[in-house]
Design a protein around this nucleic acid. Structure first.
Lengths: 219, 219
DNA sequence: TCAACCGAAATTGTACACAATCAGCTGATC
DNA sequence: GATCAGCTGATTGTGTACAATTTCGGTTGA
C-alpha cells in the first residue's frame, strides 16, 4: 500500500491523490472509519501530512469529519449517485454553453472531432465487448474533458472536478452495455458538437444536460 | 486578530472559518501571500492546525497552493465573479427544481412565505436606504437558504456552498441600489414560490436561474 | 438485569523541533 | 555589465512528543 514516491511532491498532496484514487476504485468502502495512525503507517508517512490530506478531502466532500472523532469515508449510495449525476448534468451543460458561446479554437475542435471519430469507429464494429467498451471509455473521457477545457472557466472546471471525483459519477464509469446504447451516446456527442460549432449555445447546453442525465437514467 | 474561542471546536476548523470570513469581508486581499508563521501568531495558534485549515481552504478553491512556496489568496476579479454567478445560477436553479419536484413541507413553505413577506414589506416602504437594504438582505438570504434546504440534496448544498463562499458571489452581497430593483427581485421571489407550489419544476428552475443571473447582470 | 459511573486504553488535536527547500544576496567570471 | 555559482536567512514540509478527548471494559449500586 505504498505511495508512488515522486519525491518532488509534498507527501500531503501525494497522500490526498492516493486516497482519492482508492475511493474511486472502491478500496476504501463507504462509511469506513479512517484510523489515522494505522493509515499513516500503511502509507508510510507520519500523521502530519496525512491529516492535512484528510482535511482537504473533507473539504472536497469525499470524507465526513466529526471533531474529535475523526474522518469517515462518505457514503455514496445509489440515490446519492443519482443526485451527483443531476449536478454533473447541469454543470457539464453549463460548460457546453460556455464553450459554444466562446467558440472552439482549432486544437479543441480537432480533439473533439477525433474523440467523436473514435466513438463512431467503436459503433461501426457493432460489438460491445470489453475491448469496445474500453475504447469507447477513452473516447468519452476525451470528449468531455476537451469540452470542459474549451469552456475556459476555471471555477466551473474546479466545481465539476469535485463532482466527478464522487465515486459513481466519474467520467470513467460507462453505464452502456449494448451496441445500441453506445450508438446513441455517440450520436449525442455528434449533435452536441454540431450545436457548439453553430454557436447555438442554448441548444448545446440542453443537449449536453440531457446526454449526461441519460447516462444515468438509461439503465 | 484573535479567534472567537469556542473551546469545543478544533482550532483547525475555527481557523478555517475565520479565514473564510476574512476573505469574504476583504480583510485578506486578492493574490496576497500567506506567511504561515506570521498568520499562526496573529491567530494565536501553532502552524499545525493552521496548515490543516489552509489545505482545506485550498481544496475549497479559495486559496492557491504551490508546493514548497505556500498559499496565496485566490484572485477573484470581476470576470471571475461573473463566472461564479453563472455557476451559482445553474446550481440554484437545480435546487429550485428539486424543491419543486419534491414539494415543500409545511415549515419550508412557512419560511419562504415569511421571507417573501419581509421582502414585500421593504418594497412597500418605497425607500432604499441602508436600513431597507439590510432588511432585504436578511429576507433574501432566508429565501435562498430555505429553498436550498428544501431541495434536500446534500451534495448540491455542499457544491453550492463552495460557490457561495467565493468572494463576490455570496448571498449576502446585494447588488440592488434602487427601490425598483428591489421590487423586481421580490417579484422574482414571488413567482418562483408560485412555480414551486404548483410543482412546475421546469419553470421554477428557469425562473431561479434567471433571477440569479439577473442579480449580477443588472448593474 | 440494568443503568450509571469510573478508569484505562485508544484515538484525535496541538505544539514544537528539525529537515528540506526556496529567495535573495554576494562576488567571481566572462 | 550581465550571468551564474554558492552562500545565507527565511519559509515550508515532516516527524514526534505530549495534551485533550473519546471509547470501552468492568464495577458498583439500585
Amino acid at each position: 500500500m505504498d505511495l508512488p514516491d515522486r519525491a518532488l511532491r509534498p507527501r500531503a498532496i501525494a497522500v490526498a491523490d492516493a486516497l482519492r484514487e482508492r475511493m474511486l476504485d472502491g478500496a476504501l468502502r463507504d462509511g469506513e472509519k479512517l484510523n489515522e495512525t494505522r493509515l499513516a503507517d500503511a502509507l508510510g508517512v507520519s500523521r502530519t501530512p496525512l491529516r492535512a490530506a484528510l482535511h482537504a478531502l473533507a473539504a472536497e466532500g469525499l470524507l465526513e469529519y466529526a471533531p474529535n472523532r475523526g474522518f469517515t469515508v462518505r457514503d455514496f449510495s445509489t440515490e446519492l449517485i443519482d443526485e451527483a449525476f443531476e449536478i454533473r448534468a447541469a454543470l457539464e451543460g453549463l460548460a457546453c454553453r460556455f464553450a459554444a458561446r466562446r467558440g472552439l479554437d482549432a486544437s479543441s475542435r480537432a480533439s473533439l472531432e477525433t474523440a467523436l471519430a473514435q466513438g463512431e469507429a467503436v459503433v461501426a464494429t457493432g460489438q460491445c465487448g470489453p475491448a469496445e467498451l474500453e475504447r469507447y471509455r477513452t473516447a468519452n473521457v476525451a470528449f468531455h474533458e476537451t469540452l470542459l477545457h474549451a469552456a475556459q472557466n476555471r471555477q466551473l472546471a474546479d466545481t465539476l472536478r469535485l463532482v466527478l471525483n464522487r465515486p459513481g459519477a466519474s467520467l470513467r464509469r460507462i453505464v452502456a452495455f449494448t451496441p445500441d446504447q453506445i450508438r446513441q451516446r455517440v450520436d449525442d456527442h455528434r449533435r452536441i458538437l454540431e450545436a457548439i460549432l453553430s454557436q447555438d449555445y442554448g441548444r448545446a447546453e440542453l443537449l449536453m444536460r440531457d446526454h449526461v442525465s441519460g447516462i444515468r437514467t438509461a439503465r
